[in-house]
Amino acid sequence: MIPAQFEYVRPGSLAEASQALASDEDAKVLAGGQSLLPLLRLRLAYPSTLVDVGRLDELKGVHDRGDHVFIGAMATHDEVMRSDVVNAGCPLVALAAAHVADPAIRHRGTFGGSLAHADPAGDMPAVVLALDGVFVARSARGEREIPAADFFVDYLESSLGPGEILAGVKIPKLGEGWGFHYEKFHRTAQAWAIVGVAAAVKRSNGAIAEARIGLTNMGPTPVRARATESALQGMELGDQIRQACEEAAADTSPPSDLHAQPDFRRHLARVLTHRAVRTAAGTP
C-alpha cells in the first residue's frame, strides 16, 4: 500500500531533532522504519513529518561504561546481537536480539525503535524490563532518566513525552553467577512471539539466589513475573521449580488474537517460564 503524504527531515544534531519534534506535534521519529513504515503503508498512521534520527552520533553504538552497558538507540538488532560488549556485559540482550524477525529486519530495525515503539509483542521490551534497564531520554529541555518499570505505559505507548528522543538504554551488569535464557514461542521463524520469556537466574550452592523474569506479549505492556521470581528465590534446583513457575501468568492480561487466546497464552507462560528458568540456571 501507499502512505499518505508526509514531510521528511534528517537533522544533524540532537538539538535540531528535538526542535523539529517540538515544533510539530504530529511529527514522528523515524529510526529503522521496520514498525513505523508498515503503519504508514497501511494508512494506520498519518504523521506530518518524519524526523530521521539516523545521523545522530549520540544515538549510535554500544559502549562499555564500567558498571553498565550503554546501548545507543540506533544500534541495530544485528549490531546488538554481535556486539562483544553486549555479549560480555548483558548477554540476555544479545540472546534475545538474535530472535528478532529475520536477518533483513535485524539489519534495519533498531534497539531503541523496538523499545520506543512499546509493542509488548516485541522481544526487547521484556528483556530490558527484566534487566532493570534505565532509559535515557533527550529533549530541548535536557536529559531525563526513566527506569524500565516506568517506561512502558500501555499498548504502543511509552512514557516518552512530546519532543523527547530515546538516546539509549543503560543495562546494569549483573556480575558473577548469573545465567540467561530467552525462550520465544512462535509459529514461523520470522514471526513475532506468541509468548516470550526472558530469564536471568543467579545460582549459588545448588539453589537459585535470585531470578528475574520478563514476559513478552502477556499484556498491553511487557511484565515481570514477580510471583514466580519471589517463589524461586532461595529455591533448590529440582522439580519444585515447575511449581514456582505455575505462578508465571499471575496478574497478567494477555491479548487474544489469531495465534492464541488468553488461556493458552497463560498456559504457555507457565511452561515457557519453567523452560527458560531451567535453561538459565544451567539445569538440563
Binding site: L42, T188, Q190, L258
Partner: peptide
Amino acid sequence: ALFEEAVYDADGNLLTTTMADYLLPSAAD
C-alpha cells in the same frame, strides 16, 4: 496442514490481510 488459514470474523471481515496474520512457512520452518 500447519500454518495457513483465511479467517473471516462474525461480520464477514477478513482478519488475515497481512502476512503477520496469514502465516506462510519459509525454509527455516
